[in-house]
Nucleic acid binder design. Sequence first.
DNA 1: AAAAAAC
Length: 598
Amino acid sequence: MSGSWADSVSEPDLPAAVRSPARPTRPTYVPPHIRNQTVQTTAIATPSRPPFRTRRPVEPNPFDSVTEKLADVDLSTGINFDAYDDIPVEMSGVDAPPPMEGAFCDIDLGCSSLNGNVRRCGYVKPTPVQRYAMPVLMAGRDLMACAQTGSGKTAAFCFPIIARIVNGPGPGRPRRGGSRTACPSALILSPTRELSAQIHEEAKKFAFQTGVKVVVAYGGASIHLQLRELERGVDILVATPGRLVDLIERARISLHLINFLALDEADRMLDMGFEPQIRKIVQQMDMPPPGIRQTMLFSATFPTEIQRMASDFLSNYIFLAVGKVGSSTGLIAQKVEFVNDFDKRSHLMNLLHTQKVNGTHGKKALTLIFVETKRGADSLEHWLSTNGFPATAIHGDKTQYEREYALRNFKTGTTPIMVATDVAARGLDIPHVAHVINFDLPKAIDDYVHRIGRTGRAGKSGLATALFSEVNVPLAKALVDLMQEANQEVPSWLSQYAEESSYGVTGGRNNRFGGNRFGGRDFRKCAPPKKGGYYENPYGVSGGGDVGSSLPYTPPSYGCDYGQESIGGVDVGSNLPYTPPSYGCDYGQEPITATGWD
DNA sequence: AAAAAAC
């Protein structure tokens, strides 16, 4: 039945002006923003010859793979929503919109195509992050959202972006700046190419027949194909930072009409390695400032230090934490085994053999093995292959083709074992990953959280095994804390290490963020929380005065003190009134106007 | 010191 659904959809939700009468044989791409407006583009003056090449093939149906995917999912054991039901939620910020109620079928995003796509993609009941984040975003508010791995963050920001592009009155924005400069309305940045590709695929499904055009741009792939896509018009651009900067410097992309900015894996994007590039894109190009654009940051982890930096990019934002941020949902069983560094491979061999014996290594049960270095990935892949285990490897020294080939073979089960560096640690949604093995543990606990989050997705359970050796002692304390929060059994030898290391090694890099491992709360709340803990009132907003205050930090008294550093003197979250740019550019973003279900 | 991200 592939394609049948698409065929059955007669007309997309285009405004009448665009839809029927005298539709040109080769319709020029019209951005949704200007579809309601009287078209007064000079381009229309020459109907015989459109100004841009508009040979657009029929929009490919991105659902061709969905029917297969849906058939593949045992719906009776689909998303285990019970796993999310009693999850603690913290939301803070001024006038936070309340969460939405009901199932997706009760929710009108203001566009019947979009509504249909949501259902068609198998979304029935919103996960907590979707329930809380979507009203905030639909209301036009900035958002910093922390939610567990695998809980549907991508949809939580894609649905509102698409809905607001379709419904927004828009400033009648031009489709392009110079003759060949594309001007997207939304920008979604992510830290790896594969993640950008994945977001692009998802967003395309969501945007199908809404008229919203989604384009992806990342390095290692043909820039010409990307340029051609951009020339055909783009509303939502999904990109990695390097290629985006390249395209901007070539004047093939301008950000001056960006209304929506989303950073996926935002804490990674603002980490040392990425921060300069992100600052360049967001602050030193032509992107509208905070308060004009709508900015949304999503991650499973959000260290305090990064939160502080992130507030530069936000305006009067809502902070949302679903679950104890970084806690691995309890759906993931975590095991830690002590190994001598020289015994790691034989230990791994035992693990893999045990899997086979237990039958968990079935055709579709995939095993993802994380190592520290690219060389280590190649070497371990080779060793596994020569020992009878069908393995592949992915890391940043491979060509993009090799990376995608490896990922594809892993996903399809052709090689049910994949060895990976941290390139695969974040965001990738790979169904059927039953086991994540940390062959080398990461230095930072945040990376551990993201790595094990490749399993246990969408309410499914998963297993994570770590090989802990002496070099990992600095991680012991954070690991123990994390495991306890997730109700995991902690081996006594590990607790021992944790106690020892918590004295000597505290100055280490793991404590770079003051030890507040996950940024499990809004860093703006620097006053001691009310009795009962900060999850007490999920609807609560931080009491007026504490946003942007520069009170010295007072440690909370109820034992969730992770040694957060003082933020005294830092004027965070200040909301200076926006001064319009002098060049008379009307951004025209609508003010805070809730639509949909409010 | 490593990984990621442009050509």
